[in-house]
């Protein structure tokens, strides 16, 4: 499989009177052809900066990028016709209708106007296409944004939060649309916070935190690599939780004490739990494995899981203040 999109060592620094802030700090990403690739990261992690830089809206301070095998931003004018994109929230001139908006873009891009009606039909805006955009709901604007990205019938579709503002039915339609587009051979780069959706529709993911890649690969690989298998352990007597946690820690496990149970990880076999506790005369009433999902992996990798009694700040992630993350090479 060939790479449609490659980013290596991308850097972007913002300088202001308050100081220097690294929005991207040697970020790497590879998206293979025909995949639906999820692009995940907490707020302020650099997702939108990456997409804007890739699309020539922001000038990077370092690194290399290529789309469809051509280095960008130098070759962007040549490849732009093959890249459909929406970046951040959909923004359109409110006094134009959806049809006007798309036909103007079609004119500007040399796309036949018949394509306008095709994409309006595709995103379900056919019957409202003559209404002014300012009368649209956020979800309808989102559909229009997707329509504008699809107008060019692109080889690479970049969607930043396409499900934002959509109702449940709309989210499901969007999921079907993505799957259909991927089946037709289109490569889709999808940035989203709805991790359940990403897990459902994406073939691969890249996770970014503090401007660096913290995980990448197929969804299964990321889950297998980063999800630590844990066990939920309930005891016959809740009063034994503290002493049992200490015993398990002595046996080499990592233990989190919950109000009525223990979460145990780091042991090779579940039987080690029962053996350790039985030796101390404590008996287990429940021992069940807990399957990690993409959300928990994301929260663990980015260090953005909420902590009771703490107010996490936007730039506060597991990567903050640490040494540079793994450096991916060109094409990796």
């Amino acid at each position: 499989m060939s790479a449609v999109l490659e980013i290596a060592g991308l850097q972007k620094t913002y300088r202001s009177r308050k100081g220097v802030r690294k929005a991207l700090d040697g970020f790497d990403m590879v998206v293979e052809a025909g995949q639906v690739h999820g692009f995940l990261g907490p707020n302020g992690s650099g997702k939108t900066t990456t997409l804007r830089t890739l699309l020539g809206l922001i000038r990077p301070n370092g690194g290399r990028m290529s789309i469809l095998g051509r280095e960008v931003p130098q070759a962007l004018p040549e490849v732009a016709g093959s890249v459909g994109a929406i970046v951040e929230s959909p923004q359109f001139f409110g006094n134009f209708s959806a049809q006007d908006t798309l036909s103007l873009l079609a004119d500007a891009g040399g796309v036949p106007r018949t394509r306008v009606f095709e994409v309006l039909e595709l995103v379900g805006l056919r019957d409202r296409s003559k209404d002014r955009v300012k009368t649209y709901s956020l979800g309808m604007k989102q559909r229009l944004a997707v329509a504008s990205a699809l107008l060019k019938n692109p080889k690479l579709l970049i969607l930043d939060e396409p499900a934002n503002g959509l109702d449940p039915g709309g989210i499901r339609e969007m999921r079907g649309l993505m799957a259909g587009l991927a089946e037709s051979g289109m490569t889709v780069l999808l940035s989203s916070h709805i991790l359940g959706e990403i897990q459902l529709i994406c073939d691969s993911v890249t996770i970014i935190a503090a401007g660096r890649r913290v995980a990448a690969g197929s969804v299964a690989e990321v889950l297998a690599t980063h999800a630590s298998t844990s066990l939920r352990v309930r005891l016959e007597a809740v009063s034994d939780l503290t002493s049992s946690a200490a015993a398990l820690r002595d046996a080499g496990a990592q233990v989190v004490v919950e109000p009525d149970h223990l979460m145990v990880s780091g042991l090779a076999q579940p039987s080690a739990v029962t053996r350790t506790l039985a030796e101390r005369g404590v008996y287990v009433s429940e021992l069940s494995p807990v399957t990690a999902d993409l959300e928990s992996v994301f929260l663990e990798l980015t260090g953005t899981a909420p902590v009771q009694g703490e107010n996490r700040q936007v730039d506060q992630t597991v990567m903050s203040g640490t040494a540079p993350a793994q450096s991916g090479g060109w094409g990796r």
């Binding site: 970046v87 873009l105 891009g109």
Partner: peptide, 9 residues
């Protein structure tokens, strides 16, 4: 911005 996504010149 939308226009520049179509015409990046």
């Amino acid at each position: 911005m939308n226009l520049l996504l179509w015409r990046p010149r």
